[in-house]
Amino acid sequence: MSARVHKLINQPENILSDMLDGFCAAYGDIVRLTDEGLVLRATPKAPGKVALVIGCGSGHEPAMIGWIGQGLFDVNIAGEIFTAPGPDRILQGIKAADRGAGVLVCVSHHAGDLLNAELALELCQMEGLSNVDMVVLYDDISSAPKGREPERRGTAGLFFVWKMLGAFCEGEGDLAAAKALAEKVRDNTRSLAMSLSSCASPITGEVMFEMPEDEMEIGMGLHGEMGMGRQKALGARETIDLMLPPILEDLPFQAGDEVLVLLNNSGSMTLMELFILYKRVAEKLAEAGIRVYKSWIGPYATTQEMAGFALSLCRVDDELKALWDAPADGAYMKQR
């Protein structure tokens, strides 16, 4: 018998439309909602620049609706809860985003996101839309071993790709250059997540999996997919000491490297806990001779009310640092 959680929604079948209506009403200066349920920039980018599109399941807010805006993405096609949108809707998003210089469809690697993006690209070919490409992004080291990186899942660390790719596509680079930049950030990014609790499906209210109170799971995916396994819950310091070394070894991040750090809140972890965790991250990185360029702590890609976090590192050079510092104006990602 699994526990039920009461969520403040209206009818379960209206979760997506109610959420998008509320979001776009609140941030009407940044985004607008089309009749087809696409979230676009309120003011489109100038013609002649590569446009960025992402389709993804909902339930991970502020990802990705919060990332539509200047210096970020052009269009988000939000699917149902934890369900990638179908190819027709992705095609609509591609058409809505196109500014005459090509469209890059970004895929956070999960089966549904990938398959529907592939189908959408086939529809583009059938309609003669030729300047459209896709890039598959992944960062979670727990989902496939080193050497099989393309099998890995996309998780919170794609944060770095979204920001820097968004900045890149405000410039003059073409579609191929945009894809190459996305791959460069991806290939310098590694993440590992952990969770102390499950979350409930907003549709059914049922808890998605059972998690004993005194245990934690390392390597949890964005939908509560299993990771490396369960173990006794540890303190903050011990948890970081367990999670950071495999991240560092995987790239590997080495002494002298400069990195961006993200501590992403999966849902109901407190900022207090995240700051305590970050203290240990900073200590261990300093010990390893790795310089932190900038850090971000907060809920950027969530899994409902799951209590957990993801630790993500991205190695940066001068090009990436400049893109990181470029202005961005999304509802939930601002950089001045």
Binding site: G57, G79, E80, F82, T83, A84, P85, G86, P87, D88, R89, H110, A111, G112, L115, N116, E118, L119
Partner: peptide, 9 residues
């Protein structure tokens, strides 16, 4: 288009 996700595809 009605289902989305991997199952829809």
């Amino acid at each position: 288009n009605g289902m989305g996700g991997a199952s829809g595809a």
